[in-house]
Amino acid sequence: MSYMKTLLAGTAAIAIAGSAMAQDAETRVIGVSIPAATHGWAGGMNFHAQQAVERLEEVYPQLDFVLSTAPDAGTQVNDIEDMVATRNISALVVLPFESDPLTPPVQAVADSGVWVTVVDRGLSVPGIEDLYVAGDNTGFGRVSGEYMASKMPDGGNIVVLRGIPTTIDNERVAGFEEAIAGSGIEVIDMQHGNWNRDDSFNVMQDFLSKHPQIDAVWASDDDMAVGVLAAIEATDRTDVQFVLGGAGMKEMVQRVMNGDTMIPADVTYPPSMIATAIEMTAVGLTSTAPVSGTFTIGSVLITPENAEQFYYPDSPF
């Protein structure tokens, strides 16, 4: 099974890295700490992290990588402490599970002179990290909203499915609402689908019972879009013209590529940003090229014209 192979390869790489470190004092270690693959986007992010580590270990023989995944913030703090204590890392790439609980331990790591790269979710105190590879949640919402507005020039009724109540979700929705303001589009209902297919299916079924006329749906996430589509397919309703998801799941990108009218577009929030962060950190450690600062990965609109370049058939996401 290919899963097994991937896992074995990863383990082997880490084991070899460990023995290599003992032999060669010049070897430098980069620690990567990310949340576990508990939902689709995180699964994709895990995939890209593993790919990046494997690739970079070949490119930079003088670098070793430690990759750990955590199911919650507490475990992630432990992971980071272990990396510093037992692996003597020179750089830390961290995608914080939550901002607040991770800020003090990451600050301690930074204070001890370790290079710190923060990905996606920022820390609560600015200026700790050497490099911030950021996703743009407000931008994600804005791109989605702008697309909606352009697709519905005469306005219309839409429903919105939100994610798990978090800052990320709030920023996305705020960006979206700002972008559709004045376009004639009215958000007639909004509920949390928790970035979950089953929850969004249930919510969408109820929206369909409640509202006789829904022109479009902003599902705000591709997993939720799957649930929404299933709910719509089960009825004979023809009023819903299209569903806009987000994040760039391969199945959705494929549907965009194929010109599916229900999924005319998608908005990226690429899980591969972790790979970008790891790569930039590696460059920073091995060369004199300046990589510090903030590197924002903007959300891009995927349309049938450009879909091919966002399609990763090997990714689980």
């Binding site: 896992l7 576990a36 693959a37 689709g40 699964g43 199945e251 990714s315 689980p316 996401f317």
Partner: peptide
């Protein structure tokens, strides 16, 4: 199930 799906979704 996470392992079977490689962290993603089995369809």
């Amino acid at each position: 199930v996470t392992w079977l799906a490689d962290g993603g979704t089995l369809s």
